[in-house]
Write a protein that binds this DNA or RNA. Structure first.
Lengths: 133, 133
DNA sequence: ATATTATATGCGACATAGTCGCAATTGTCA
DNA sequence: TGACAATTGCGACTATGTCGCATATAATAT
């Protein structure tokens, strides 16, 4: 490693501080507000580097673009609002144990070595429920 | 309804018969093999119509493109192989009850009205496990 | 039988996400 | 200082998906 990368450090902090998963587009607009301009490809590359280094994790929460969050956040799941697209972290102890057991059952039945899983809930957040009444 | 749509019927059958979720790209290449040529936009539109009619369901299983499967298939979950990208349906009774209970807990804790959920497992299928040894 | 009309289609433009190669820049270290 | 490795900008490219417009076509009403 020869050259120090300010952008990576900056993004690390940004991901660390943000409470919701971020897309590259989110990052771009946040940087724009602060008058920090990088070429799109540079941002994609920096984020890929962070991912390769294991500092952030890529999530699958919609099929339009990629979302990332800090890898320091413990494994958790998301509530995704159909209406306002907000993504909220879920934290409930009961989940993990069940998913662990379920994984074991599946490994046996399907001979599939499970490395990771994805559990997301879709619906309407508190705010958007009001809007519909 | 004025004009009968052959493409929709054709796609319905195709989705109904396919055992794995299909992307539009998958559909295109299947049709190409049979020398059936439609413009890309036509296929996208036909698939969207099927989705609106509730005949197929859109899945979120990776963040590159959309996948669809017949809506007649009962709700289930997928095993997705990192290596060969194969998508396998999982069927295990225990899941549903747990997810139902979990949903209830989340509704209470987060005031989030859950309409749908997504549970996918990622890892290595039987075949790709062999390849790695 | 013909006119009407809603729907389906092709074509192409456009938007967005993401990748890649190349050249130029820049920090680090010897 | 000079060499090296990594970062960056730029632009071309691919892929997915949407949309508007003109045209074609099947079903319906007259």
């Amino acid at each position: 490693m020869r050259k120090k990368n300010f952008l990576e450090d900056y993004l690390s902090i940004l991901f660390y501080q943000s409470s919701n998963p971020q897309s590259v587009a989110d990052i771009v607009s946040q940087l724009k507000k602060k008058h920090i301009n990088y070429h799109r490809s540079t941002l994609f590359r920096a984020i890929n580097r962070l991912k390769e280094k294991g500092l952030i994790k890529e999530l699958i929460i919609n099929n339009e673009k990629k979302f990332y969050e800090s890898a320091t956040i413990p494994h958790h799941h998301h509530l995704i609002c159909y209406q306002c697209k907000k993504i909220v972290d879920v934290d409930l102890d009961q989940k993990e144990k069940f998913i662990f057991n379920l994984s074991k059952l599946i490994q046996e039945k399907y001979c599939f070595r499970i490395k990771d899983h994805l559990l997301e809930f879709y619906g309407l957040c508190k705010n958007c429920q009001k809007g519909l009444v």
